[in-house]
Design a protein around this nucleic acid. Structure first.
Lengths: 115, 115
DNA sequence: ACGCTATTTCGATAAACCTAGAATTAGGTC
DNA sequence: GACCTAATTCTAGGTTTATCGAAATAGCGT
């Protein structure tokens, strides 16, 4: 069992690289069905192997989800995870919520018909 | 001039370590005037030199601010920077806002009255 | 100046990360 | 099966990070 802080750190670390953050943005802006790796590669203009590693990082952190469609792999953002992370970060920074209690009132989740 | 994505990546990277994330939480929960490094050290139970390096990372990223008070150094969170980062991240993930246009008001999300 | 405390900087080591060409796997088509 | 494309995994390099004891710095009190 991994503590929340460990998980959040892993996810933030995955986001803590300009290329990966750009990849995420590219994926987020792409179609809901997911963006093919090749399309991301073309857009960011980086070697396929390098991209693949970064995609693996994002995937292992649970920030993106992959689905095969023929020979292409489509990557899409996991908005639930991203939202939970953002919320944790915000709560952590502004309300100083401890790991056990979550005394946050109007959380930003029940809106934005996502996931 | 550093692009926003680069800056955000640097800040997220600083947060992408369990110890540093714990440090930030400790600082956030501490007094507004700032928390002495020694107090953080006691609380997290890590060597002073290790702590100092992590504090430097957070400081260089602009997430925390340091102020001397006698022999002790008080670290406090820079909520403005933290909020801006959270906002950028959320916008990046939920609205896929491009780097040029920033159609964000003051909340991390267009719904859920918060702040 | 001396001692004391708080904190940082130095130095060294081990581990992890980033990059990218080359080789490989996976899936589709003929 | 042969072939092509998409993407990953292999391999290897150079770079950065993480850790922490030891030494140095900063400020205060005497």
């Amino acid at each position: 069992m991994i503590r929340r802080v460990e998980q959040a750190a892993e996810q933030l670390k995955a986001l803590g690289h300009p290329v990966r953050l750009s990849i995420l943005r590219s994926v987020v802006q792409g179609p809901e069905a997911g963006t093919p790796a090749g399309e991301i590669q073309t857009r960011l203009d980086i070697p396929a192997s390098t991209l693949s590693h970064h995609l693996a990082s994002l995937s292992e952190a649970g920030l993106v989800v992959v689905a095969r469609e023929g020979t292409t792999l489509r990557y899409r953002a996991d908005f639930g995870v991203l939202h939970a992370l953002t919320e944790y970060l915000w709560q952590d920074c502004c309300s100083g919520g401890s790991e056990s209690k979550s005394s946050l009132k109007s959380e930003p989740s029940p809106c934005c018909g996502r996931d």
